[in-house]
Structure formats: structure tokens, C-alpha cells
Nucleic acid binder design. Structure first.
Lengths: 180, 180
DNA sequence: CGCCGATCATTTACGAGTGAAACACCTGTT
DNA sequence: AACAGGTGTTTCACTCGTAAATGATCGGCG
């Protein structure tokens, strides 16, 4: 494939991103360090931070935050009513956070709560018509915006990257679930 | 060309990670959606979240948060005194956050502030001896912990992944810098 | 020299998330 | 039937981050 002068003892990375610069600094100060994990984890974190910062442009227009949108999205894609507990699991946030978001989204008329008939502890949450319409309107914009942001990579690179991250994620999910 | 049916093995989408499951849900509900960006961005975000959640184990022992450690690391790897403004740029956080962290780290005796002689607006921050020792003690542990977390991928996959993310990051940095 | 806009750090007010406690309710056991 | 323990949701107290305002200082320009 690409031979980028992968000489042993010398690193293949002449990349221009910030993480590469940071790693170079570390190596000049503490040369015996194994900096490999930084190159990967640092880049994942940094990419996520950059994406989070910019990616939400189409969401901000209707005044949504990303966690709010993910909550609405979970309801939309499952197609059924979900409990706050379900939503906490689906969006990987605490129950308390879900309660707060539900409060706001209810006030805006995007979701509705109703009591469960059989078990009165549980609350069932569903999208209102307005909520469903909002998700259906925003999601394509958001996806096209994201596609644009990712357009610096060609389709093959994107798929390869997604595949590798999927593999990593599968491992992490198993490994970290075990630790909890 | 995107015949991404549910045939296992043909597309890389038979992955078992959570993002794949989410994408599958979206496709059954809104089949006309181009879900490709989700597979990539979703996985980046989710990986970052999972890593953040677990990765900091060696940091917590000495009672450090990750942002605090990154501040100390910036001082250690540059080898010079930095101003709060520098630190804000290096750690990608707001100036106010840096001020708060400096307060705590100063109280713990890990960093020191001193006034700049030429320009009395600026403050120069440096590691104390204890701070330097702490970074040097914790960093190898942290890196080895991270290497362990990443061990589900083999070396070749890790390097390929790091390389692709580096390319993405380079693009994002340019693109998003332009938007600000 | 003295003012004016710019720059740097800090303070302030506030919003959002978290873990733990509180509350309501269910279920199996005696 | 009553209770004990478990589960689901909400509330509470707290921490952390941010944006905007504040205060101090610099540099240039009339």
C-alpha cells in the first residue's frame, strides 16, 4: 500500500495534526516512553472534541443540544414508547440527566409522558407529533452536515475507519462492561 | 451501489457494536437515510466516551482528573513555563477553566505561579518538583493502562487506525478552524 | 505625556451533569 | 395480609465548565 518509510526505530508519522505534534514533544523530553497509545487515544478524543464542537450546527438552529437530540432520536428510531430508564441506557447518561432533559422537552411540547397502567412506578415517554416532525426534519440536515465534515476522507477511507472503530468499540464494550 | 442489505460478511456492517445496532434501527424506520456518517461519527463519539469513562483509572489514584493531568502534561512536555493562555490553548479549554484548575493544582503544590517581569498582565506557570515527579510517575502507568485497553486490536490495526484518524484530524483542524 | 483600544487573567452568574438519597410502587415470602 | 427487599423515577447537593463582565496592564498615537 502506501510505503511511508516505515523504518524501525524511526516513526512513520509525519502527520500534521496536533496529536502528532504533542507526541513529538513527549518523545524529545522522555524518549523512552511508549507513545503509541497516545497517538490513537489522543486522536480519538481530539476528533470527538472537534466534532462535538462543530457538528451540532443544524441542531442549534431549532435550539437543541446534542444530548437532547439523541434522546429524541432514540424514541424515533425505536418507534415505541420508552421509559426514562430505557432512555438513560440508550443515551448513556444518568437517570437524573434524563429526567432533566425530559422536563425541558416536555415543556417544549416535543415529548409526552404518561403513566404505565400495569406498573405505576414507570413512566412511558413518547414523541409528540411535533417531536417526530422535528426529528425527521433535522436528521437529514444533520447527516448531510456530518457527511460534509467528513468529506476530507474518501469513501474507502471512511469505511475502513468505521470498520476499525467498530472493532475497537466491540472490544471496549466487552472489556469495560466487565470492569463495572 | 450501496446495497447494504443484511447479508453478513459482504458489508462491514455486521459489527456487533452498539453503533451498528443503532444504525440498523434507523434503517428499518427511515430506509432512505444515508446513515454512513453515523457509523463513523457515532463510533468516534462512543469510543471517546467509553475511553474517558475507564481510561483514567491510573489518574484517579493520585486524585487527578484528566483535564488536570493534561494541564500538567502540557507543562511537562514543553519543558518551559507557560501562561494560562498558553495552557488554555494547549488543553483546548476556556481560560476560566484553566484558572480554576491552576488554583487547585497550586494548592496541592504541583504547580507554581510567578509574575512575568516584562509584562505584568501575564502569569507564568511552572511545575514544581513534586508536580514533575508526579507526571513522570503517572504517565507510564497511564500509557501502559491505555495500551492494555487497546490490546483488542493488533499492532497493525492500531497503526492503521491512528493513521486514518490523523488524516481525519488534519482535515478537521483546517476545516473547523476556518469556521470559527 | 496621557489617553484609547487591545490583551491577559480572574471573577461572577449560570446551566448541565452526577451520585446519593428520597419517594413510590411492585413482588415474593411467610 | 403484612412485610422486606428490589426496581423505577425524581430530587437534592455538589462539581465543573462556560460566557460575559471585571480589573489590571501594555503599546501606540496624537
Amino acid at each position: 500500500m502506501t510505503d511511508n518509510g516505515n523504518r524501525p526505530g524511526q516513526r512513520p508519522v509525519d502527520a500534521a495534526d496536533i496529536v502528532a505534534a504533542v507526541v513529538r514533544q513527549w518523545r524529545t523530553v522522555l524518549p523512552e516512553l511508549d507513545t503509541d497509545p497516545m497517538e490513537l487515544i489522543g486522536r480519538i478524543n481530539r476528533s470527538a472534541a472537534l466534532l462535538r464542537q462543530a457538528e451540532d450546527a443544524p441542531l442549534r438552529r431549532p435550539g437543541l443540544t446534542r444530548p437532547e437530540f439523541e434522546l429524541l432520536g432514540a424514541l424515533r428510531r425505536t418507534g415505541r414508547e420508552l421509559t426514562p430508564g430505557d432512555l438513560a441506557r440508550e443515551t448513556f447518561s444518568s437517570g437524573a440527566a434524563v429526567t432533566k432533559r425530559l422536563k425541558q422537552l416536555t415543556e417544549r411540547g416535543l415529548v409526552e409522558r404518561r403513566a404505565d397502567a400495569r406498573d405505576r412506578r414507570v413512566v412511558l415517554v413518547r414523541l409528540t407529533e411535533a417531536g417526530r416532525e422535528l426529528v425527521d426534519a433535522v436528521l437529514p440536515e444533520q447527516l448531510s452536515f456530518e457527511a460534509d465534515v467528513l468529506s476530507g476522507l474518501d469513501a474507502q477511507e471512511r469505511h475502513l475507519l468505521a470498520e476499525l472503530l467498530g472493532k475497537l468499540l466491540t472490544q471496549l464494550e466487552g472489556r469495560l462492561a466487565a470492569r463495572l
